[in-house]
Design a protein around this nucleic acid. Structure first.
Length: 511
RNA sequence: GCCGGCAUAGCUCAGCGGUUAGAGCGGCGGCUUCAUAAGCCGUAGGUCCGUGGUUCAAGUCCACGUGCCGGCACCA
């Protein structure tokens, strides 16, 4: 009986929006979770992808003189091309236009229709004549839409009996079977569920929108966003295609997303699953926004940060570090050049890279280029050793809580202890005294071992740089993080391999 | 309007009934040279938003006030 895999998802991204800092964050976060789980021994199933149907995609294709298919092929590829350099280790990249997904969507819709969970009704709302789209009252206010361009119209459509599921969803959330994080978001969802929950219009007539999944029970309609987009999470897990895979992967262990689509995932999606008789996901985690100057990045304000420009300038790993370390998962965070440089220079360069340089250099000068044997520990366990042991204890819990910023913080604490140990033991002084050979050996071992352990801890966040750091210590990364964290893993006699500075200064200030 | 959250050092935050309220960054002073002008030590003394209350004891619980933020059904 194969065990249950740890299944982590990002939302599927709408092809008409280019990858930006928000989507990059969600995806990097998912990747870091996936890498930690693998390192801690879990089988992992990591899904991301693109959402490709809908009016905007169809219109954009038309404008470019392309078929929707060709347009989406190109834009979907753009996401893959962004994730590759960011080292995103997804197992599945799903596209909603894949034939297997169409089959799943239609099968679910057909089943719900036959069981009366979907019915035909009338949708009435404000229709924007020139944009050819229905707009909500909220959108009219927020976007200050000219009401003279609106007409009140009604049209026949299909509705999903979402309202029926309200109590069941609420029970799942209250009981914790469906966990919503952070807790403040959980409260919001519960508040939302206090009120009546309406049904959900799930169709559009083909006469207005043809780029979508046809309703199996009425070929004049396509399904509108919800069933099409959300069902990707089960399609990508093998639902109705591969029972063994689906049994191994579903339910999802965590759906990650920005807080803007929390309701969709914590109400609509569970309602759909409950109606379809599919188990609910275990956890939904909504993260915050990246802010610039205290306000959300937006194209209209023109304060959008291009994440890849930082990756180009400082390296992909540095970008991943900033995203993971700077944002308290669930809260908003500031993205600024100053903060980025502080993280790069301070955390990566000064604490980590510099300690690596110190260790490798001192082993070269005072240890003959080989990791010495730690003959004894003077005065009990060193501070780094104690810190490493503590880290081994706390890491799995932090990963379970998706408190990745705290994992990063803990790794820096360990490195700080390492730097303190260097100053405490001062091997360059002890090396002058032939009687203190064992003192030097102990010190050098402890310092190198600190860097090794910290690098192993950091590897899921900064895969390339951590591997580079370990290589300088003559170590091949371990696949088993728990084992790697045990003190004493560095084998005495291992030749260190001095290499380039791990995090060189970027545009250092003139002096 | 209704519901909810937050308000702790210059900045970002931790602390969730009990010794002199903490960390990182920044600032200031000193030490050091193995190292990426990196590191280490010390320090700066902040009405823990305000008022009232509960308690032997309150950033830490309750009420009210002020300020900020979030949610409020078809919006990826």
């Amino acid at each position: 009986m194969p065990g249950k895999a740890f299944y982590v998802t990002t939302p599927i991204y709408y092809v008409n929006d280019a990858p930006h800092i928000g989507t990059a964050y969600t995806t990097v976060l998912a990747d870091v979770i996936a890498r930690y789980r693998r390192a801690l021994g879990d089988d992992v199933w990591f899904l991301t992808g693109t959402d490709e149907h809908g009016q905007k995609a169809a219109e954009a294709a038309e404008k470019r003189g392309l078929t929707p298919r060709a347009h989406c092929d190109e834009l979907s590829q753009r996401f893959r091309d962004t994730w590759a350099p960011l080292q995103i280790s997804y197992d599945v990249f799903i596209r909603t236009t894949e034939p297997r997904h169409l089959r799943v969507v239609q099968a679910v819709l057909d089943d719900l229709w036959k069981r009366g969970e979907i019915y035909r009704g009338t949708y009435e709302g404000w229709y924007h004549v020139s944009d050819e789209i229905f707009v909500t009252e909220k959108e009219i206010e927020e976007k200050a839409i000219d009401r003279s361009k609106l007409r009140r119209i009604s049209e026949d459509n299909y509705f999903f009996r979402m309202g029926r599921q309200r109590d069941a969803i609420r029970e799942a959330v209250v009981s914790g079977r469906l966990e919503i994080r952070p807790a403040s978001r959980r409260n919001e969802v519960l508040g939302f569920l206090e009120k009546d929950l309406g049904d959900l219009c799930i169709s559009r007539p083909k006469s207005r929108l043809s780029w979508g999944v046809e309703l199996p029970f009425d070929r004049d309609y396509v399904t509108y966003v919800w069933f099409d987009a959300l069902l990707n999470y089960v399609t990508g897990a093998g639902y109705l295609q591969d029972d063994a895979t689906f049994a191994r992967t579903w339910p999802a262990d965590v759906h990650l997303m920005g807080k803007d689509i929390l309701t969709t995932h914590s109400v609509y999606w569970p309602a759909m699953l409950l109606a379809a008789g599919i188990p609910l996901p275990r956890r939904i985690l909504a993260h915050g926004w990246w802010l610039v100057g205290g306000t959300k990045m937006s194209k209209s304000i023109g304060n959008v940060v291009d994440p890849l420009s930082y990756a180009t300038k400082f390296g992909v790993d540095a970008l991943r570090w900033y995203l993971v370390r700077e944002m308290v998962v669930g809260q908003d965070a500031e993205f600024s050049d100053e903060r980025f440089r502080a993280r790069y220079d301070g955390d990566l360069g000064n604490e980590w890279g510099n300690l690596l340089s110190r260790a490798v250099n001192m082993i070269g000068r005072f240890g003959g280029g080989k990791v010495p044997s730690p003959a004894l520990e003077h005065g009990g366990p060193s501070e780094p050793r104690t810190a490493a042991a503590a880290l081994l204890d706390t890491l799995p819990g932090l990963v379970d809580d998706v408190a990745l910023h705290r994992v990063g913080e803990a790794a820096m604490d360990l490195l700080r202890a390492g730097n303190r140990h260097v100053d405490l033991t001062q091997p360059w002084k002890a090396a002058k005294d032939p009687a203190k050979g064992s003192v030097v050996a102990d010190a050098l071992y402890t310092i190198a071992e600190t860097v090794r352990v910290a690098s192993e801890v950091l590897r899921p966040i900064l895969p390339t740089k951590a591997t580079d750091a370990l290589a300088q210590l003559g170590v091949t990364p371990s696949g088993d993080l728990r084992a790697a964290l045990r003190w004493g893993g560095l084998v005495p006699g291992t030749a260190v391999v001095p290499g380039p500075v791990l995090f060189p200064r970027v545009d250092p200030p003139a002096r």
